[in-house]
Design a protein around this nucleic acid. Structure first.
Lengths: 236, 236
DNA sequence: CGTTCGGTTGAAAGTCTTCAAGGAGGGTGG
DNA sequence: CCACCCTCCTTGAAGACTTTCAACCGAACG
């Protein structure tokens, strides 16, 4: 029988755990525990010992590195069902911070490694996820290295559309244009895109003025013309 | 006994194969074959079916993506002992091209997957490599998003120092300042750093003028002041 | 000996950043 | 309940850095 902590888990079938059957999951679950994170709370700092292994259950986290003089770059965003943890390294070299209130399922290193040894399916699934993450990261490099500010912002919004559920979609039909609640501030979006906060703000208003998006509030975006947005994500 | 193709392999102990003992390696080797690549030869194009799985034995390859209008970004460099291949995906989404004449050890998909299933150590090793590559890639994102042209070029040169052997080091003692043969043209370096060819050229001459490096020829770099180079890789 | 490819250098242009000021929303305390 | 404060966002103007456009150089090659 599935441990009740897992039975009603929102990501039981999409996180790493999906690789395990109920019995196996039960064993893994014995070493894991749920943890709540408050918005802004940092789970690990660059240079810390690599001790945290976790599935994101709810919320959004960021992975970030920075230069000695404080310039920051967000190098990864973790959404529900994503995995966090650096195996095979003594230290981690990026911070991990909750962008929203979050709920994660944490495993201690020893226990997680043991599960990895015992369940090859788990390791296979982790390899699969890691390779997919590497692909996404490389795509992101194209954005950082070669795209203009407008293309970057448009690409970012498309990414949000891809990874986030529209607001109030619980049982509602897809009637009007979808609205998303951004888990990031303008400054954090700037850190994702390698821009300044002012440039992000300007590009957002440009897209709004062009009628491509609407901004009901600073944290909400409505996608009015998805195709126009895609065009601007890779303009010639 | 080790198949003679592996026995004298330059990367027998540093590539993925290092995870296997001689017997296991022998089995893997039965499905693999050596392949020579000419400089400039493309091994796979973005959009191709994912069929190539290989260890780099000698030479340097690049992984690159580009926008629809032709702007290119190099998203990975493969040095000897590095692994190439995208499991768990039908298509690959970046090109792979030889920057120098190269020598690789190719496995067909089926055979490689079978070996992965049979030898858990092999899968473990691949997971380890993939995670390390993800770390390197994320560090590179900091460079792309937040560093100035000078910092980018200096960082790139330090990377070369890290991953490449100095010229003519076979039996020679480390006496004078080390010289490296760049496997990339200025244009390719620009594609790595998210700059233009002119900017790369200008920064190189700046470093030369400052006495930090010397440029015996366009493809060679001598590191005169490693510490000064490090300082410029992350200036305040 | 001319052509081509890669590299360098200069000048002008453009994009993004920096600096600066003002505004809107949310929470706290009087 | 309202004033105040803090954080986040927006907007303008000036400036800096990188790109773009262009010309030239040098080595390799046919």
């Amino acid at each position: 029988m599935v441990n009740h902590a897992c039975a009603d888990c929102a990501v039981r079938d999409s996180a790493l755990c999906a690789a395990l059957n109920d019995d196996e999951l039960d064993r893994l679950n014995r070493v894991g525990r749920r943890q709540k994170l408050a918005k802004g709370q940092t789970l690990q700092f660059a240079g810390d010992d690599s001790l945290v292994f976790a599935n994101v259950v709810e919320g959004v986290l960021k992975l970030s590195t920075s230069t000695a003089d404080g310039r920051e770059q967000i190098v990864g965003l973790l959404y529900p069902a994503d995995f966090l943890g650096r195996l095979f390294a003594v230290r981690v070299d990026y911070d991990c911070t909750a962008l929203t209130d979050a709920d994660i399922c944490v495993f201690p290193r020893k226990g997680f490694e043991a599960a990895l040894n015992d369940f090859q399916k788990l390791e296979r699934s982790l390899l699969e996820r890691t390779m997919a993450e590497l692909d996404r990261t490389r795509q992101w490099m194209l954005l950082l290295g070669r795209k203009s500010a407008e293309e970057k912002v448009a690409s970012f919004l498309l990414n949000i559309v891809d990874r986030l559920k529209p607001e109030g979609c619980a049982g509602r039909a897809a009637d009007g244009p979808p609205t998303y609640v951004l888990p990031l501030t303008r400054g954090q979006i700037a850190d994702v895109l390698g821009l300044t906060i002012e440039t992000v703000s300007r590009q957002m208003t440009r897209l709004k003025t062009a009628g491509v998006i609407a901004l009901p509030s600073t944290r909400e975006v409505t996608i009015l013309k998805p195709l126009a947005l895609e065009a601007r994500a890779e303009a010639a």
